[in-house]
Design a protein around this nucleic acid. Structure first.
Lengths: 252, 252
DNA sequence: AAGTGGTCTAGACCACCTA
DNA sequence: AGGTGGTCTAGACCACTTT
């Protein structure tokens, strides 16, 4: 009476797909098919290692893939448990931002405003400067493949020698857009995603309707001394930048 | 002429902090201090292994931590490179959602509506049912520590035997709120984050102002047969649920 | 050919949980 | 005490990139 003999797939060590990925696929399949039910325990790592003739480290790597995907959760001393999918563990990536800004050859930047202004109220607080200190302000309309994509507004503390200011004013190479490719290095930054609505001007520039609900992505960057160096935001429509998060097993 | 003798920290193998975490800390420090500049190459893993007297696997684990944090990027055959921080690689987690719903003892749920209705227009499309098929609809006000937190609206295909319907109507145990603890298992789901604004009623219930910009988190779940089983959304103010993403090195 | 990251082994010991 | 995940070693071979 054979048990567990041919009911399972095995690891093909001649395959180009790494063993850990093969095992991850097998386990993922068993989870999505209901063979391992939500809340239940996965076979222990030593057991999986024996069953699929892999070392513990390789087995751990396979399970680690599922952990990254949020399908299972490891609890030391107890085991690895199949997770139920749910809203609470999700995260939203700025995938569209990545794709759009990666295609530099299809980006067009129009400078709407570039000026030096005295700092006021909120800006003083955010950038930790005194009232009337001078700020560089730049507003840009960024189009992607001919379609208006986002409006960017940025403020930086004015300092002719600061690479930040240089980068901001450098529309040509886009370095000022998101500080991903510039000469300066920042210790840290913070993003904040907010709901807002199109102003009349924004709607016109981005081909939307005034009052339409859109995203605002605020960003603030700090230098090595922990001082804020720039503050600004992007305005972008959810139609141009859908924020979607998939949970569970897709594409099987 | 000593070089690299005492300028570097070393790994304390008697520490409770794992060696890989210690090395990750060292490397993170060197990145944030500018010792390793953005765009530059990290020492190779064999080099780091020799330098800190660790095995390759342990060194890899340390570098893996920084990869997860987005501070460095591995490129096979070339090396590991320090990344510049930027907007494009960020993601937003629903941390507040996690925390709020984890404190089940501090949640209060008021059922605003529970009914069976015929499907119409948009709902037919989303749930892939025929016009006038019956749907269960539930609206809830969820309060956390006495403060109104979110309004949840959910639709499910009516089937008295479906665990989804059971879960939705089960206000007591909150299982219907986000399907994270219920008896049913779902193969997959999709979330969509959207900007919108408070309706008059929503504003009143959530102590906000009508017309205020807020988040809408749409969710749709599918069963094992890939059929939609439920659709709905949460309405929540950005003040109650800030969506923040930190980039670079914080808390050093 | 040499250097890099990517995968893998066959063990080992530790920390934690349950019985 | 025995099982579980967490860490670690000292090698090995492979795939990819550069010289």
């Amino acid at each position: 009476m054979p048990e567990d003999t041919v009911d399972d797939e095995t690891i093909d060590k001649t395959s180009h797909l790494p063993a850990y990925a093969q095992l991850a696929n097998i386990l993922r399949m068993k989870i999505s098919s209901g063979h391992y039910e939500p809340g239940s325990r996965l076979p222990s790592e030593p057991n999986l290692s024996r069953k699929y003739a892999l070392s513990v480290m390789t087995t751990r790597q396979a399970v680690g893939v599922l952990v990254e995907e949020g399908l299972v959760k490891r609890i030391q001393g107890k085991g690895t448990f199949v997770q139920r999918i749910g809203v609470v563990t999700s995260n939203f990536e700025l995938e569209v931002f990545q794709k759009v800004f990666a295609e530099k050859e299809h980006l067009d930047v129009t400078v709407l405003k570039a000026a030096i202004e005295p700092a006021t109220g909120l800006l003083c607080k955010v950038l930790q400067v005194a009232e009337d200190d001078r700020l560089v302000v730049v507003e840009r309309l960024i189009s992607h493949r001919g379609q208006p994509f986002t409006i960017q507004v940025g403020y930086a503390i004015f300092n002719p020698e600061s690479p930040t200011v240089e980068a901001m004013l450098d529309a040509e190479t886009l370095t000022g857009l998101f500080f991903d490719n510039g000469p300066s290095s920042f210790m840290k930054g913070e993003l904040r995603l907010l709901p807002t609505f199109f102003s009349k001007e924004e709607a016109k520039l981005l081909h939307g309707k005034a009052g339409e609900s859109v995203f605002k992505i605020e960003h603030i960057y700090y230098d090595f001394a922990n001082q804020p160096v720039s503050y600004g935001w992007f305005i972008v429509s959810p139609e141009k930048m859908p924020l979607v998060c998939r949970m569970g097993v897709w594409n099987e």
